[in-house]
Amino acid sequence: MARVLVIDDDKDIATTTSLMLEQGGHKVETELIEKQAVAHVDSMKPDCLVLDVMFPGNSEAGFELSRAIRSKHPTLPIIMVTSVNDYSTLKFSNKDIDNSWLPIDQFVNKPIKKAELLGLVSKLTGK
């Protein structure tokens, strides 16, 4: 069982993501407010993060959050979910992961599939 924090401003995406994780036996908390995300990580000390790319009014909020969190918690695995890959060619892919610009562990496209998500969490946390 891993302790996972889901950060997404869409309440339903946060709910479905956490239900999927709970079905996989993980313990989950959700954070819907971008500004509270870092503090939530600090207090919860999760084993893994599932982070949305885009928050309203700031299309790079997820990137900025990933940098802020990685600098404080360098070993915390971050899975980034995105629906910005709208086109036949991917706008972002795992190739773009970069320790200074985009310090995450894995990209996952929305809609998230339960099997994929659970597989990733156990791969990244070993739990």
């Binding site: 995406i13 629906s83 709208d86």
Partner: peptide, 29 residues
């Protein structure tokens, strides 16, 4: 149109997520 597409996909993603869980979900939820 880009923003519109994003706004239209958001509910689809949410609903698809619920359906994915409903397949083997608990009665209560």
């Amino acid at each position: 149109l880009s923003v519109l597409a994003h706004e239209l996909k958001a509910p689809l993603n949410a609903i698809e997520g619920y359906l994915d869980i409903l397949k083997d979900g608990e009665e209560g939820q």
